[in-house]
Amino acid sequence: MDHEVALQLSAFNKLYKELDELYHDFAKHCGISDCAFWILYSVQESVEPYTQKDLSEIWSFSRQTVNSALKNLEADDYIELVPLPGNRKNKEIVLTQKGKNYAEEHVMPLMEAEQNAFGKLTDEERSEFLRLTQKHISLLRTETNAILES
């Protein structure tokens, strides 16, 4: 392995873990699990309804993890699960009034901080960051798929 590539990859992985830890600490400060935080975040930011399956796919959490977080959020009266028309199996995740208040107090400040931080990058930097991240994920997916298929 190329030594310079190994050093850069190590630096990238540390930065990724630092970012992950930042979000973990924020969720912990809010008194909820990471998964519960991302559920509230997703429902707060979206105009489209989300189901358990949607959130599992979007955030790469297992269905069991999402199900457990949803049960806790429902028990705490932050969300309600509303059957979708014509499909009683899939349920839309809807914030209750308590959930809306909680999201406004805890989730929105983080969303605003993210937007402020990302907005301090230039248009070109944001585009390049997204382009390179997408490219890296695509290349890594190709490499890992090759390992998994062998």
Rank of each mutant, 00 (worst) to 15 (best):
R131Q: 11
L7R: 10
V107Y: 06
E125N: 13
I137M: 05
N67C: 13
Q134I: 12
E128C: 11
H29Q: 15
Q52E: 07
N67T: 14
K17N: 03
W59C: 00
Q134Y: 12
D54Q: 05
V82S: 06
E21S: 01
P49L: 07
C35R: 08
E128G: 08
F118G: 03
E45C: 06
A6S: 07
Q44D: 08
K135E: 05
T122D: 00
D25P: 00
F12D: 07
R131W: 08
L139D: 14
S46D: 03
L7K: 13
S68G: 13
L110Y: 11
Y41L: 12
L73R: 08
V43T: 06
K17I: 08
F118L: 01
D77T: 12
L95W: 14
A75E: 08
S62F: 06
G119A: 01
S42Q: 08
H29D: 11
L22R: 02
I79G: 00
R141E: 09
A75H: 05
Y23I: 14
L84H: 08
L7T: 15
L81Q: 14
S127K: 13
H106D: 01
V43A: 07
V43D: 04
M108F: 12
L19M: 04
L132M: 04
L40T: 11
E104M: 01
K91H: 04
F118Q: 01
L73K: 03
I32W: 00
F12S: 09
L9T: 09
D20G: 01
Q97F: 15
A117P: 00
Q134C: 04
L19T: 05
S60E: 00
P109S: 05
T51R: 02
V66A: 03
M108L: 14
S56H: 02
E143T: 10
D20N: 02
E124H: 11
L81P: 09
E143F: 06
E125G: 07
G86N: 12
W59L: 06
E105H: 02
S56Y: 07
S138I: 09
M111P: 07
I137K: 11
P109T: 04
E92Q: 00
Q134F: 13
I137Y: 10
K14E: 10
Y102P: 02
T96H: 03
A113Q: 11
L84W: 05
E80D: 00
V66S: 09
V5Q: 03
K28T: 15
E92S: 13
D20P: 00
I58W: 01
Q115R: 12
S56W: 05
W59R: 12
V107N: 08
R63A: 08
S138A: 09
N87T: 09
S60R: 07
K14N: 14
H136C: 04
R126T: 05
Q115G: 04
S60F: 06
D54E: 06
K14D: 15
